[in-house]
Design a protein around this nucleic acid. Sequence first.
DNA 1: CGATTTTTTGAATCATATCAACGTACGTGG
DNA 2: CCACGTACGTTGATATGATTCAAAAAATCG
Lengths: 189, 189
Amino acid sequence: MFPNFINHLKKHVELNIDEIATLKDFVKIIEVRKKDFLLEEGKICRYNYFVEKGLLRMFFVNEKGVEQITQFALENWWMSDHMSLIMEKPSVFNIQAVENATIIAIAQSKQEQLFKQLPQLERYFRIMMQRAYAATQMRFKYFHDFSKEESYRQFISSFPDFTQRIPQYMLASYLGLTPEYLSELRKKA
Amino acid sequence: MFPNFINHLKKHVELNIDEIATLKDFVKIIEVRKKDFLLEEGKICRYNYFVEKGLLRMFFVNEKGVEQITQFALENWWMSDHMSLIMEKPSVFNIQAVENATIIAIAQSKQEQLFKQLPQLERYFRIMMQRAYAATQMRFKYFHDFSKEESYRQFISSFPDFTQRIPQYMLASYLGLTPEYLSELRKKA
DNA sequence: CGATTTTTTGAATCATATCAACGTACGTGG
DNA sequence: CCACGTACGTTGATATGATTCAAAAAATCG
């Protein structure tokens, strides 16, 4: 039904057949089409989203009206605005499908009950949050260390296949440079 | 003995007297003096550090030999290189005391046993990791949104007291600008 | 007080942004 | 399945935010 999701859970915690059945009562499957929104700026983010298939982006719109992408999520990644989720405050971000996608959503409102019934899930999310945080620590290092040009070259050599899945202007936005400058860098080498 | 640490735990999970006693077997108190290191580049990070009192910084050294600060931790914050901690790989970071500090350290090697004896701690760390991740999501937004000048002005107005505790060149390093430029901005307004 | 550390100054330079225009590709409806 | 319109990518000229370097001034510390 959603093999990536179940496999991902099983990779980190023990889950038997009955527990998987229980889990199904707590999740919602969402099919989104390219450009559909899962979260819009100003609304409270009430779900944590797992990408079973497809690709999501998180972005905000700056004062000049330009969309700035802060994260992508592809298969087997979680995405949410955790500040909005925890604080129950309106989000400054949007979450939108870049490709048609199959999403598993867990409602914040059901999380406590879920952890009570399946304590392994608390552990699973502890691991996921720690990983996500570890990844951002490295990302901050790159931000400090690399020029825009270096960021670009290291990104495309680290994720050549992912680079193919997104338009250039989205990569430019994610890396924090202009589409024009990215184009110039491409020409150069 | 370490009131901030215990109070912080109690704010998020239930802990009785016996459990606190148990916990004490799992933590190590470290007194560090200004400029002492808790982690050095190239070594594997084996602890998660809680700042009971004082101030820590995390930094790396770039190819030019310049120290780049990626994080600070003051009272009631945790600090660790989670990538190194999880993967048991050499760290690219250093963790150093900016002020004399009292640190509570939990060894990665004892973490599983700790969670088995005190399952609330797994929950506590799930919450801590989620908060830390939420904070970095906002920080990425600022990175994308603000010019260096705006980053500086928003930092000093958000954390006026913290600004007083660190030399300017450290703030410059954390914000990703040069001490010279920061000095220019200070003069300007 | 002297020595080290931190901050400031100013000039030259560079990486990257901006703007406007043109070229290309691509998906959607007829 | 073609054509048209919109979305995406490129180009070049100009502008600017921020860095670099070297040196002096100021602050801090033992």
